[in-house]
Lab assay of single mutants.
Amino acid sequence: MEVRTIKVFTTVDNINLHTQVVDMSMTYGQQFGPTYLDGADVTKIKPHNSHEGKTFYVLPNDDTLRVEAFEYYHTTDPSFLGRYMSALNHTKKWKYPQVNGLTSIKWADNNCYLATALLTLQQIELKFNPPALQDAYYRARAGEAANFCALILAYCNKTVGELGDVRETMSYLFQHANLDSCKRVLNVVCKTCGQQQTTLKGVEAVMYMGTLSYEQFKKGVQIPCTCGKQATKYLVQQESPFVMMSAPPAQYELKHGTFTCASEYTGNYQCGHYKHITSKETLYCIDGALLTKSSEYKGPITDVFYKENSYTTTIK
């Protein structure tokens, strides 16, 4: 009895394709271990004539594949690729409408935090270190965002349907971005203890939790000093293409032309909904596939993004 075979390709990165001759009487799992086709788990399936010449994702289970996976995804987590594939199996079914010149995501599976993050990423200057993220990001900007969303979920250790947080998501993504040249110098002034300067680099240099107003941050924000008295913390120097200011959701007025974009969060910790506000020729609110415009805006804002380049204080 002759062994019926077909020729397929296996890959971990969709760049390096490895030619395989597979036995049609055995499952993919018996031949390769966990195997995925377009995100779908085909591990328990036997090869079919229609699979001839198709590319299958496999887990990096030998040295060659491990090197290829690390170079593309910059992670050695053995569960990463499987999590990416199972997320992709959902995100490829989502709709990605162009809204006001940006790629958004039609609401499904509690994905409003991903839509808000995706919209924000198209408006701030950011370059990702893992080629996987950078490639998928370019495709997302062009309207094909399924891979990018699935990668975000995998890097953030999230599953489809789980509630997510924009600030946490951005923080994970910033860790995989090139923020080497970003720098922030802060000064804390206390009447009792004097003053202390701190220099922050990388992710810490672009994120701040405690106030939404970048102007206020430049002037000074009140913080408790270690001595128990009130101290003032203010920005001395900022070198970065953008800054992200966050605070627990509270009524906040966004003035046209003073910011790049913002995240609105309605609801409580267990259950809520994100919308995205962007400042173009007027203010726009993007909620999944829905767009509304207004000249002014007041609502429960939790993150505001500002364009920056270089700032030095005039406070002496």
Rank of each mutant, 00 (worst) to 15 (best):
Gly272Ser: 00
Ile124Ser: 04
His273Ala: 02
Pro248Ile: 13
Tyr84Ala: 05
Val67Cys: 15
Phe305Asn: 04
Pro249Phe: 06
Thr266His: 02
Ala117Lys: 04
Cys112Pro: 02
Gly29Asp: 08
Pro78Asp: 10
Gln230Met: 15
Val8Ser: 03
Pro97Ser: 15
Cys271Trp: 06
Asn49Trp: 12
Lys106Asp: 11
Lys44Ala: 11
Pro248Tyr: 04
Ala250Lys: 08
Ala40Pro: 05
Ile223Trp: 11
Thr91Asn: 02
Met209Trp: 15
Gly228Arg: 05
His273Ser: 00
Tyr214Lys: 01
Gly210Val: 00
Asp63Pro: 05
Val304Ala: 05
Cys261Tyr: 01
Pro224Asp: 10
Ala40Lys: 12
Glu71Gly: 09
Ala205Arg: 02
Pro47Tyr: 02
Gln30Trp: 15
Gly299Phe: 06
Thr116Trp: 02
Ile45Thr: 11
Gln222Arg: 13
Gly272Asp: 00
Asp287Thr: 05
Cys112Trp: 00
Tyr234Lys: 11
Lys293Asn: 12
Arg139Ser: 12
Tyr269Phe: 13
Lys201Gln: 14
Asp180Ser: 11
Ile286Phe: 06
Gly220Arg: 02
Thr314Gly: 14
Gly210Lys: 01
Val243Met: 00
Val99Thr: 09
Gly257Asp: 13
Ile15Tyr: 15
Phe242His: 04
Leu212Met: 03
Gln195Thr: 15
Ser181Phe: 08
Thr11Arg: 01
Pro78Met: 14
Gln30Thr: 12
Gly29Lys: 10
Leu17Met: 10
Lys95Ile: 14
Ser171Glu: 10
Val160Lys: 08
Lys46His: 08
Arg83Pro: 04
Tyr252Gly: 09
Leu291Met: 14
Gly272Glu: 00
Tyr265Gln: 00
Leu118Arg: 06
Lys316Asn: 15
Gln251Gly: 06
Ala108Cys: 12
Ile6Leu: 12
Glu168Cys: 10
Gly161Ala: 06
Asn89Cys: 14
Glu296His: 14
Phe305Ser: 02
Tyr284Thr: 12
Gln30Ala: 13
Gln216Met: 08
Phe80Val: 04
Leu118Met: 09
Thr211Asn: 08
Leu291Asp: 08
Glu71His: 06
Cys182Pro: 01
His51Met: 07
Lys95Pro: 03
Gly33Val: 05
Val22Gln: 08
His276Ala: 03
Ala262Asn: 01
Ala177Pro: 00
Asp109Gln: 12
Ala262Thr: 01
Gln31His: 11
Lys54Thr: 13
Phe305Ala: 03
Val243Ser: 01
Ala140Lys: 02
Val189Leu: 09
Val189Ile: 11
Thr103Met: 04
Arg4Gly: 12
Tyr214Arg: 03
Asn14Arg: 13
Phe56Lys: 02
Val188Ala: 06
His256Pro: 15
Ile152Arg: 00
Cys271Asn: 10
Thr27Ile: 11
Asn157Arg: 05
Asn110Met: 04
Gly228Val: 00
Ala289Asp: 14
Val21Leu: 13
Asn100Thr: 09
Leu114Asp: 02
Cys182Val: 07
Asp13Lys: 05
Thr11Glu: 07
Lys158Gln: 06
His74Asn: 05
Leu126Ser: 05
Leu151Ile: 01
Cys261Ser: 01
His276Glu: 00
Phe242Ser: 04
Lys46Met: 15
Val99Asp: 03
Cys149Arg: 03
Ala205Asp: 02
Thr5Gly: 11
Lys218Asp: 00
Asn49Met: 09
Thr226Gly: 13
Asp13His: 02
Gly39Arg: 03
Glu162Met: 05
Arg141Leu: 11
Phe174Asn: 04
Asn111Gly: 05
Ala250Phe: 08
Gly101Trp: 00
Phe80Lys: 05
Trp94Val: 10
Leu114Gln: 09
Asn16Glu: 05
Tyr113Ile: 00
Thr312Arg: 15
Thr260Tyr: 07
Gln197Ser: 11
Gly202Trp: 02
Gln134Ile: 04
Ala132Glu: 05
Arg167Phe: 07
Glu253Gln: 09
Ala146Glu: 10
Ala140Val: 14
His256Gly: 08
Ser25Asn: 11
Pro131Ile: 03
Phe259Cys: 00
Thr211Ile: 08
Ala146Cys: 10
Lys46Ser: 12
Ser263Gly: 00
Leu88Gly: 04
Leu163Ala: 09
Val188Ser: 04
Tyr28Gly: 07
Phe217Leu: 15
Arg184Ala: 09
Met245Asp: 03
Ser294Phe: 15
Tyr265Pro: 01
Lys218Thr: 01
Thr282Asn: 08
Val8Leu: 11
His18Pro: 11
Ile105Met: 04
Pro130Phe: 01
Val58Ile: 11
Gly33Leu: 06
Lys293Val: 11
Thr11Phe: 06
Lys183Ile: 11
Val3Cys: 14
Leu254Gly: 00
Tyr57Lys: 07
His74Leu: 13
Gly82Ile: 14
Leu283Asp: 00
Tyr57Cys: 09
Gly267Phe: 14
Leu102Gly: 07
Ala177Cys: 15
Leu65Asp: 12
Arg184Pro: 03
Cys190Gln: 01
Leu153Val: 07
Leu173Asn: 03
Tyr155Gln: 06
Asn111Ser: 02
Thr302Gln: 03
Trp107Thr: 06
Glu162Leu: 04
Asn100Leu: 12
His90Gln: 12
Ala115Arg: 05
Thr302Ser: 15
Asp38Cys: 10
Pro34Ala: 15
Lys316Thr: 13
Ile223Leu: 08
Asn14Ala: 08
Thr19Trp: 08
Leu283Cys: 08
Phe242Arg: 04
Lys229Leu: 12
Glu71Asn: 13
Gln270Pro: 09
Glu168Lys: 13
Met170Leu: 13
Cys112Leu: 01
Gly257Trp: 00
Glu144Asn: 12
Thr198Trp: 11
Cys261Ile: 09
Pro224Lys: 14
Thr258Pro: 03
Val42Ser: 08
Met85Pro: 11
Asn49Pro: 12
Gln195His: 13
Gln122Asp: 06
Thr91Tyr: 04
Gln134Thr: 09
Thr226Asn: 10
Ala177Met: 06
Tyr28Phe: 07
Leu114Trp: 06
Gly210Ile: 00
Leu119Pro: 04
Gln123Ser: 08
Asn111Leu: 00
Thr76Phe: 10
Thr103Arg: 03
Glu52Ser: 13
Thr91Phe: 02
Leu37Tyr: 13
His90Ser: 13
Asp135His: 12
Gly143Ile: 05
Gln98Thr: 14
Tyr172Met: 15
Lys106Arg: 00
Leu173Cys: 04
Thr232Met: 11
Lys307Leu: 09
Val58Lys: 06
Asp23Ile: 11
Ser294Gly: 04
Lys298Tyr: 14
Lys293Pro: 10
Ile277Tyr: 00
Cys227Trp: 05
Tyr265His: 01
Tyr155Trp: 01
Met244Val: 10
Ser295His: 11
Asp109Trp: 04
Leu283Gly: 00
Gly288Leu: 00
Phe56Gln: 01
Phe242Ala: 05
Lys127Asp: 05
Pro241Ile: 01
Glu68Asp: 07
Glu204Thr: 07
Gly143Lys: 05
Thr258Leu: 06
Thr43Tyr: 10
Tyr214Phe: 06
Ala69Ser: 09
Gln195Ile: 14
Glu239Thr: 10
Asn129Glu: 10
Ser104Trp: 05
Ala40Tyr: 13
Thr278Asn: 10
Gln98Leu: 12
His273Gly: 04
Thr302His: 05
Asp63Gln: 07
Leu151Tyr: 05
Arg184Val: 01
Gln216Asn: 10
Glu71Val: 02
Lys183Ser: 08
Thr5Gln: 09
Leu290His: 15
Val58His: 08
Lys275Gln: 05
His74Val: 00
Leu118Asn: 02
Glu52Met: 11
Lys106Met: 04
Val3Trp: 11
Leu153Ile: 09
Lys298Phe: 13
Phe70Glu: 07
Leu121Tyr: 04
Ala145Gln: 06
Gln20Glu: 13
Ile6Asn: 01
Cys156Ser: 09
Asn89Tyr: 09
Gly53Gln: 11
Thr27Lys: 07
Thr43His: 11
Thr91Glu: 02
Pro241Val: 01
His276Thr: 03
Glu71Pro: 04
Ser279Asp: 15
Thr282Ser: 13
Ala69Glu: 08
Phe70Lys: 11
Arg4Cys: 14
Gly220Ala: 02
Ser25Arg: 13
Gly82Thr: 13
Tyr28Arg: 06
Phe148Val: 05
Asn14Trp: 09
